[in-house]
């Protein structure tokens, strides 16, 4: 995982609520056994016309003003549906490292952190103002500073990024969760011994 650095990038607007993982990465693309290369299929069914190749001119992300965006601003309840990590893989591979919404589905939320993406939760009023700023100035760039826990916009909006200390550290350093947990292997082993005595049938 890449360390998450402070950046100023174009914010793309997707004013849709309940964007589910089936839309983020339709299941016909889940059959790969690798982790990479999902970006070209991000939002496939919306992004392309029925032939599956021609970009749909009406789809938000095909707006030339949003080309190269790293920040995605979307409606309520983003990422609901399945647990497929292919969704954040596709988002990351497409080029986003920040998703902003009023709420995120639980599994999607934690999957983001494992892939160097920050999901930023904002209030409905904050979301409205961010969306308004993008509408008024398509291609506008927002600044995300994780270290300072702040998102700022040229229009003067300042939003605090709520993120727990551990996740923040892992993102900033690009740390591997498994390596962290394995540092506690002695505790896992001790727990397992105790658990085995209490519930011996789990090991039979």
């Amino acid at each position: 995982m890449q360390p998450y650095k402070k950046h100023t990038s174009i914010a793309a607007l997707m004013d849709r609520s309940n964007v589910d993982t089936d839309q983020i990465i339709p299941k016909q693309f889940l059959k790969k056994v690798e982790r990479t290369g999902f970006g070209i299929h991000l939002f496939h069914d919306w992004r392309f016309l029925d032939d599956g190749i021609t970009p749909n001119p009406d789809f938000e992300l095909n707006n030339p003003a949003f080309k190269g965006a790293k920040i995605l601003v979307a409606g309520d309840n983003f990422g609901c549906g399945s647990s497929r990590e292919h969704a954040p893989w596709a988002i990351e591979d497409y080029g986003f490292n920040t998703v902003i919404s009023t709420s995120f589905a639980d599994i999607f939320f934690s999957n983001c952190f494992k892939n160097g993406i920050i999901p930023i939760k904002v209030t409905p009023a904050e979301l409205d103002s961010l969306m308004d700023e993008i509408r008024a100035n398509e291609g506008v760039e927002f600044t995300v500073d994780l270290e300072a826990e702040k998102l700022t916009t040229p229009g003067g909006i300042v939003i605090k990024i709520e993120v727990d200390a551990f996740r923040k550290q892992s993102l900033l350093e690009g740390l591997d969760d498994i390596a962290w947990s394995l540092k506690h292997e002695d505790k896992i082993t001790a727990f397992e011994e105790k658990h085995k005595q209490q519930l011996p049938w789990l090991w039979k």
């Binding site: 399945s82 647990s83 990590e85 999957n111 892939n115 394995l182």
Partner: peptide, 17 residues
Amino acid sequence: GIGTSEVEHVMATQTLQ
């Protein structure tokens, strides 16, 4: 349900964060 990174985490550590 968990994501694939967590599947790997459980495989390796028998735990989840």
